[in-house]
Design a protein around this nucleic acid. Structure first.
Lengths: 332, 332
DNA sequence: GTGAAAGCGCTAACAG
DNA sequence: CTGTTAGCGCTTTCAC
């Protein structure tokens, strides 16, 4: 059976009014006289009327849908961001069209095309590295857009995130302060991880700290990647004193490998992660990591979009630094 | 600037054909003569035409969108299922409209209304416990629907999952075989966790195993809930020998609490989790848990829907048991 | 406060 | 293989 063939005109007839009136009751109840409104609402309930939102979208060119694109939902940090985003957007009456790129920039552009074809009212992207096409299409579309999980000077529209370079520097500074001298880095092979490495490396170089031994794995990275990566790092530099992992999953794997080898953490090796997953506080030893408020990041993005979409007074700033902090625990 | 005001008629004019022809080139290229097709494709590229999919949906009543509803994305198991679903659906040319209920059945019904209003081509729900309205609306809509993460005899349309009761029984059997006698259960306060408890309890009773001490927390549950819950369980029954947690997050918390108290696991207490998160194998001690192929579950759901949506020959079975297995590790 | 008319941009039939 | 004729079901003016 096809979707309830009850149309707005049926409701109108049942309530003894014109279609527009039904439409008004649905979208702006206060613009209709209480008695009329009640009659319409009853007819709607009686008939079980389900408005076809696509028709509405076509007529009004407002879809009440926002598109969001993440590399993968399997990384808890992105899932948390989407959780926050979806919650806020839902409360504001918007729905979430979600796509995954698998860390592929071309896949991202295809998703943008598809979402734009859907006439989404706004877009959320992950990161600030996109194809030229993504930038131009989004700018041409002129819809509110927020890029997440990083910062940059010339966002497509808005950015909400933190400086990945600065986070890397902060980790280096911390490790340096703890007296570590031989540094390693274990990363996912993607833009934001590379920026963390950049900051880390720069701060270490500035302090005269020598080379950073590096290994990276194709994202999405796993605990096993972390374990294997640490083994490689250790093979390349047996005297390694500290390793910064571009995410907590890798760090958990590194910790696991240390346990297997009987390598004392942080006694012989400091291990630092990134993003502060809940398990970071519960593992052995508790993981020192960079705390990112992933869910709040998504909520913030949602709030910004809701504000922009509501065409209310006031300019909305383009750059939103939500910062980060070091969660100092025992591993480093 | 509004979305590129290039219409299909503009493309048609530029290519010297009728609108339908453009439409055909876009939806079924082979149905158009090569020369015409090429001309149209060039015009599309030249003008940067972005078809308005909402207009198409309205005219054809096929949206190429599937709606999915989960309690929360913050639980890795649901996020993984959505990852698998989205991947498969994307490959089949469908997009994912995602909603979170926060474990609220009424919220679920509202989402169903909204999605149906969007004329989604199919729906994916979590669990088999829904309001009567959800059932009837979905059945009336007559779209392919799959319920996930559980099993039942009379699905709305299709189910793909496993028996939560049987999983609970299997855990009990395992613990019983290991000689445990005083059982506890730590659960999230939601349908599937309750079913796991049911099976667990039944199997224990059948073996003459006495009462099961129980504590539950409001979902989504955290590691802290697990730690606190174990403390409560121990307060109620200090001689506790085994605790089955309705998910790995709670189990991780329980493990943490044991460590704090110096309670030997599994020496003094067996701890068993559920879902087999990646960390389950990496924590200390490695967690015995019930392995659920969360991502494959989502892929399977996507495949079923794709098959049904493609109106190809062959009936599609309604009930799909993907099973579960015990991941026996050290904690229990 | 309510209604009438005129589309929104595309696809479904059916012709030719 | 291509074009013509009608809508899909709602919202938008602009009157009254």
């Amino acid at each position: 059976m096809k979707p309830s063939k009850v149309l707005m005109s049926d409701v109108a007839k049942a309530a003894g009014v014109a279609r527009v009136t039904v439409s008004r009751v649905l979208s702006d109840p206060d613009s209709v006289a209480p008695a009329t409104r009640a009659a319409v609402q009853e007819a709607v309930a009686q008939l079980g009327y389900v408005p076809n939102l696509n028709a509405g979208t076509l007529a009004s060119s407002r879809s009440r849908i926002v598109g969001a694109i993440v590399p993968t939902l399997s990384n808890a940090w992105f899932a948390d961001t989407m959780d926050g985003l979806s919650k806020v957007l839902g409360a504001a009456g918007y729905q979430l069209l979600l796509g995954q790129t698998g860390y592929d920039a071309d896949a991202e552009e295809k998703l943008v095309d598809a979402f734009l074809g859907r006439r989404v009212d706004a877009m959320v992207l992950t990161g600030t590295a996109h194809t030229a096409g993504v930038r131009s299409k989004l700018q041409k579309a002129g819809i509110p857009t927020v890029e997440c999980w990083d910062l940059c000077d010339d966002p497509i529209d808005m950015v909400v995130g933190f400086s990945n370079e600065a986070a890397g520097e902060a980790v280096a500074a911390h490790l340096l302060a703890r007296g570590r001298r031989r540094f390693g880095f274990l990363g996912a092979d993607e833009d934001r991880a590379r920026k963390r490495l950049q900051g880390y490396r720069a701060a270490i170089a500035r302090a005269g700290g020598g080379e950073v031994v590096t290994r990276s794995a194709a994202p999405p990275t796993s605990i096993d990647d972390g374990a294997a990566g640490l083994a490689q790092l250790l093979a390349a530099e047996p005297r390694l004193q500290a390793v910064f992992c571009s995410n907590d999953t890798l760090a958990l794997g590194a910790l696991l490998e240390c346990r297997r080898r009987g390598l004392a953490v942080p006694g012989e090796l400091s291990v630092v992660g990134f993003s502060d997953l809940p398990v970071a506080a519960a593992c052995v030893p508790p993981l020192t990591t960079v705390r990112i408020a992933s869910r709040e990041l998504g909520e913030r993005a949602g709030l910004l979009l809701a504000r922009r979409l509501s065409r209310e007074p006031g300019e909305v700033p383009r750059i939103h630094d939500i910062g980060f902090s070091l969660a100092l625990r025992e591993s480093g």
